[in-house]
Design a protein around this nucleic acid. Structure first.
Lengths: 208, 208
DNA sequence: CGTATGTTGCACATCGGTGTGCATTGCACA
DNA sequence: TGTGCAATGCACACCGATGTGCAACATACG
């Protein structure tokens, strides 16, 4: 294996670079074609088709990765038994970079492959709702709204903040934390405390 | 003028119907083509081109109407001098049907004509931020976030709720009111009070 | 009835994006 | 030096949507 190592890694790197570039390009222009993506990746259009049989396949791979990453974050956070508010804070903190990278999905859920992507993201919604529900059971999150909707709202807020960061660069994670916590019914002062309280007591189960 | 009244009104009605249908169709499928829109309107594709020179023109007309309606709502609400929280409640109540109709815009801000539409919606954001800022000055809304972002977040919440209503039909205005008020830092109990307190003391300046 | 106007049906040119085939080049490896 | 594989460059066919031209039709109005 060592023999063909550099070759195969080289091709894997190309594939990876195409994916990353596609993620970014589509983030700013969901309608971008294979040509645009290839150009941005410093590659010829034909080469992209060498790694992905179709544009749909490329996008699907992207969506799968996003779903995988988000679900992973949720699962890891869920494993902890901290108070719900801290749990949520931790969740948003770790969701933040993912949301930032995959802001494409916001635009992708509707449009062309909407149905397929929506299906891929369903477990995310589900898992998220459970997280919210746990907070509601422990009397930390308000019960003013059903957990299903609350989950959608909360991470829509996170994505909105991440998206607004394109033009308003002084937006950081704390903003998203506070906004989503407020949505969940956590009093403002408490939410602000949570957002500024940097993880000084890192629970081992939450380290990346 | 009375002479050609029935003819001209008939054509105006056709144009109107196309616009309404396009609004709805695009709401569920932003990529729908002229053919789909025409079919949904019970008209032939060629006829649509008789009323709108291009697809872009049609979409632009739609966006202009949406912007006009929303700005109108904001302006009328602004004219009142009620407390900010009531003002906001009233605003969301009146924004609700508009957001519901024009949920297309959510998907349209990105994609094809994104730039143009974004420009059309800029005065909306501006006017909204002012409304939020007024609330912050009067110590009703929290100052945890800049009014610009807060405005975006708040009405993103309204649109999100409206959008979620497609699959979750038991969502009403009050949900949107509460969610957005929480985002603005209004305590949960107060927000709930505001949402359920039907306008028993209708300020004359707020009647439609 | 004749006229004007909106709508229809169909043909057609155009455009842009997709996906494929194939010969060629460049590079790493044996 | 020769072999293998990824990437290139260009060709092409295909498809779907856009936008246009024009004759035919329906209907309301004078």
């Amino acid at each position: 294996m060592d023999a063909s190592a550099s070759r195969s890694t080289a091709t894997a790197e190309t594939r990876e670079r195409i994916l990353e570039v596609a993620r970014d390009v589509l983030g700013g222009q969901p309608d971008a074609g294979m040509g645009d993506i290839a150009a941005a990746a410093g590659v010829v259009r034909r080469t992209v088709y060498g790694h992905f049989p179709s544009r749909a396949a490329l996008v699907r791979t992207l969506a799968e990765r996003a779903a995988r990453d988000i679900v992973e974050v949720i699962s890891e956070v869920k494993a902890s038994d901290e108070p719900a508010a801290d749990l949520w804070t931790e969740f948003v903190r770790r969701l933040w970079p993912v949301a930032h990278r995959y802001r494409v999905l916001l635009a992708l859920r509707r449009g062309e492959l909407g149905e397929e992507i929506h299906a891929l993201l369903t477990p995310v919604d589900q898992s998220l709702a459970e997280l919210v529900e746990r907070g509601q059971r422990s009397e930390v999150f308000a019960r003013h709204l059903p957990p299903q909707l609350l989950g959608q709202l909360a991470y829509a807020a996170v994505f909105t903040v991440a998206d607004a960061g394109r033009t308003q660069p002084d937006l950081d994670v704390d903003t998203a934390v506070v906004a989503s916590l407020l949505l969940l019914g956590v009093p403002e002062q408490h939410a602000r405390d949570l957002s500024t309280r940097r993880r000084s007591s890192p629970s081992s189960s939450l380290r990346s």
